Simulated assay, not measured.
Amino acid sequence: MTTRRNFLVKSGALAVGTMILPSWITYNSSVKLGNIGVQLYTFRDEMTKDAIGTLKKIADLGFKQIESARSEKGHYYGLTPFSIKKVCDDLGMNLRSGHVHIDKNWKKTVEEAAASGQEYLICSTMPSRGQTVDNYKSVAEVFNKAGEDCKKHNIKFGYHNHAYEFEMHKNQVLYDVLMDYTNPDLVHMELDLGWVIVGGKDPIDYFKKYPGRFPLWHLKDMDMIKKESTEFGKGGLDISKMLQYSKESGLKYVFIEQEEYEVSPLESMKHNLKYLQELG
Results as ranks from 00 to 15, higher is better:
residue 199 G to K: 03
residue 200 G to H: 05
residue 200 G to K: 08
residue 200 G to Y: 10
residue 200 G to W: 09
residue 201 K to H: 12
residue 203 P to T: 00
residue 204 I to N: 05
residue 205 D to S: 08
residue 205 D to E: 14
residue 206 Y to T: 08
residue 206 Y to R: 10
residue 206 Y to A: 13
residue 207 F to M: 12
residue 209 K to G: 14
residue 209 K to R: 09
residue 210 Y to D: 07
residue 211 P to M: 11
residue 212 G to M: 09
residue 212 G to H: 14
residue 212 G to S: 10
residue 213 R to S: 03
residue 213 R to G: 06
residue 213 R to N: 08
residue 214 F to D: 01
residue 214 F to A: 03
residue 214 F to W: 02
residue 214 F to Q: 04
residue 214 F to L: 02
residue 215 P to L: 05
residue 215 P to C: 08
residue 216 L to D: 13
residue 216 L to P: 13
residue 217 W to V: 10
residue 218 H to I: 02
residue 219 L to N: 08
residue 219 L to D: 02
residue 219 L to A: 10
residue 219 L to I: 09
residue 220 K to T: 05
residue 220 K to V: 01
residue 220 K to R: 09
residue 221 D to F: 02
residue 222 M to F: 07
residue 223 D to G: 05
residue 224 M to Y: 06
residue 224 M to Q: 05
residue 226 K to C: 04
residue 226 K to L: 09
residue 227 K to N: 15
residue 227 K to F: 14
residue 227 K to D: 15
residue 228 E to M: 11
residue 228 E to I: 15
residue 229 S to R: 01
residue 229 S to V: 01
residue 231 E to N: 15
residue 231 E to Q: 11
residue 231 E to T: 11
residue 232 F to G: 01
residue 232 F to C: 02
residue 233 G to T: 02
residue 233 G to H: 00
residue 233 G to K: 03
residue 234 K to F: 07
residue 234 K to D: 00
residue 235 G to M: 04
residue 236 G to H: 05
residue 236 G to S: 02
residue 236 G to A: 07
residue 237 L to Q: 00
residue 237 L to S: 06
residue 237 L to Y: 00
residue 238 D to G: 05
residue 239 I to V: 14
residue 239 I to G: 00
residue 239 I to H: 03
residue 240 S to D: 10
residue 240 S to W: 05
residue 240 S to Y: 07
residue 240 S to P: 12
residue 242 M to S: 03
residue 243 L to W: 01
residue 244 Q to V: 04
residue 245 Y to M: 01
residue 246 S to Q: 05
residue 246 S to W: 02
residue 247 K to S: 15
residue 248 E to L: 06
residue 248 E to T: 09
residue 249 S to P: 05
residue 251 L to S: 13
residue 252 K to V: 08
residue 252 K to N: 13
residue 253 Y to D: 13
residue 253 Y to S: 12
residue 253 Y to L: 11
residue 254 V to K: 02
residue 255 F to W: 00
residue 256 I to G: 01
residue 257 E to P: 03
residue 257 E to N: 00
residue 258 Q to M: 12
residue 258 Q to T: 14
residue 259 E to K: 00
residue 259 E to H: 01
residue 259 E to L: 04
residue 259 E to Y: 00
residue 259 E to V: 08
residue 260 E to N: 15
residue 260 E to V: 13
residue 263 V to W: 12
residue 264 S to M: 12
residue 264 S to W: 14
residue 265 P to A: 07
residue 268 S to I: 06
residue 268 S to H: 07
residue 268 S to M: 09
residue 269 M to P: 10
residue 270 K to A: 07
residue 272 N to H: 02
residue 273 L to F: 15
residue 273 L to Q: 15
residue 274 K to D: 00
residue 274 K to Y: 06
residue 276 L to Q: 04
residue 277 Q to C: 10
residue 279 L to C: 09
residue 279 L to E: 00
residue 279 L to P: 04
